[in-house]
């Protein structure tokens, strides 16, 4: 669908309705997952049954959009079949690619479904040309989703060194840790992003009024304390307010989200193939607004026009944004 040199817009869908919304709003590709622990957004009420997935793939293909199925958790020891079935079903449903993170599962998919296009998930945190070459050489992967720890210059250097496609996050939730290598959630709650597909799981979240303040906890650990009436962000562990030495505040990251819209031209120049919008857990209102805005931006870029100013501020966590590691000073 994308002409050579232009960027592919990869959009999230947590439900079939959001999926249709994304396609109609101009997504070149939609990524989504089955409704179980095989994908890294295994949230209550979210994701696709087998029937919904097959229907959605049909819908996308009729509208000229691609479907990328995320099977990007790390299979539990002794339960590998749940994950291989997800890969088998994705292949059987004519998904355009599967997004994988686990070595064993990549090995299985490459061996069992040689025609299936494989993408390396951000959960694999392949952060340099050698790591990427390892996946390309061993499994014939065609694209890697880069972890959110790299600067634009580093991304450009990687693209000079490798001969597969790169996809980078452009908007949405910001992971401050190397993805797929973080156990903060399982330390606090027993639910793991890697094993259960749940980061800061809602099942362990609690909001409580305490002395005029609203305190949000996860796994019993206080993450935010705000005056009643102030914005109360979701208690994501790495964006909590803590104390470390003399420091009081957001030790790891403020409750901000990523908005790298202004860096689209630089990312294109850095040789990136696809831009990814985070937010499979968000509503279709979010999907529609974000996808439409970014599609407009990409069309403008392709036509050589200036990129229109975004109207996305209200959709961002805490209503503040950062361009994250893409700017080196973030570190």
């Amino acid at each position: 669908m994308t002409s050579p040199g232009s960027l592919e817009l990869v959009c999230p869908a947590g439900t079939p309705a959001a999926f249709r919304t994304a396609v109609e709003a101009g997504a070149h590709a939609v990524y989504c997952g089955f409704n179980d622990e095989t994908n890294a957004r295994n949230f209550p009420g979210l994701n696709f049954s087998r029937v919904e997935m097959a229907d959605s793939i049909g819908f996308a293909h009729r509208h000229g959009a691609k479907v990328l199925i995320a099977v990007n958790t790390f299979p539990r020891a002794g339960a590998f079949e749940l994950w291989t079935r997800a890969v088998d079903d994705a292949a059987g449903m004519q998904a355009d690619a599967v997004i994988l993170a686990d070595l064993g599962l990549l090995d299985y998919a490459a061996t069992t479904h040689p025609a299936l296009r494989l993408h390396v998930s951000v959960q694999a945190a392949a952060a340099n040309a050698d790591a990427i070459a390892f996946y390309a050489r061993n499994f014939g992967v065609r694209r890697v989703v880069l972890p959110r720890v790299l600067s634009v210059q580093e991304i450009a250097a990687i693209n000079r060194d490798i001969d597969i496609e790169t996809e980078v996050f452009i908007f949405g939730g910001l992971c401050v840790m190397a993805e797929g290598r973080c156990s903060l959630s399982s330390y606090a709650t027993g639910k793991s992003p890697n094993m259960n597909g749940a980061c800061s799981p809602a099942s362990h979240v609690e909001y409580r009024e305490e002395g005029g303040d609203l305190v949000s906890r996860i796994g019993g650990f206080a993450i935010h304390r705000v005056k009643a009436g102030q914005a109360a962000p979701y208690p994501t562990l790495c964006k909590g307010s803590f104390e470390a030495g003399e420091y009081r505040g957001h030790v790891f990251e403020d409750p901000v989200s990523l908005d790298a819209a202004s860096l689209i031209p630089q990312l294109a120049a850095a040789g990136v193939t696809a831009l990814k919008i985070e937010g499979r857990q968000r509503s279709r209102a979010y999907t529609q607004t974000v996808v439409r805005n970014f599609r407009r931006a990409l069309d403008a870029l392709a036509a050589g026009r200036p990129i229109p100013a975004g109207e996305l501020r209200a959709l961002t966590e805490g209503q503040r944004t950062t361009s994250g590691a893409y700017n080196k000073t973030w570190r």
Binding site: T15, F43, G45, A202
Partner: peptide
């Protein structure tokens, strides 16, 4: 919170 999220997601899908 989990119940609220599930309800929100389920309703959002039903248009």
């Amino acid at each position: 919170t989990e119940a609220v999220l599930a309800l929100r997601n389920a309703i959002d899908n039903e248009e």
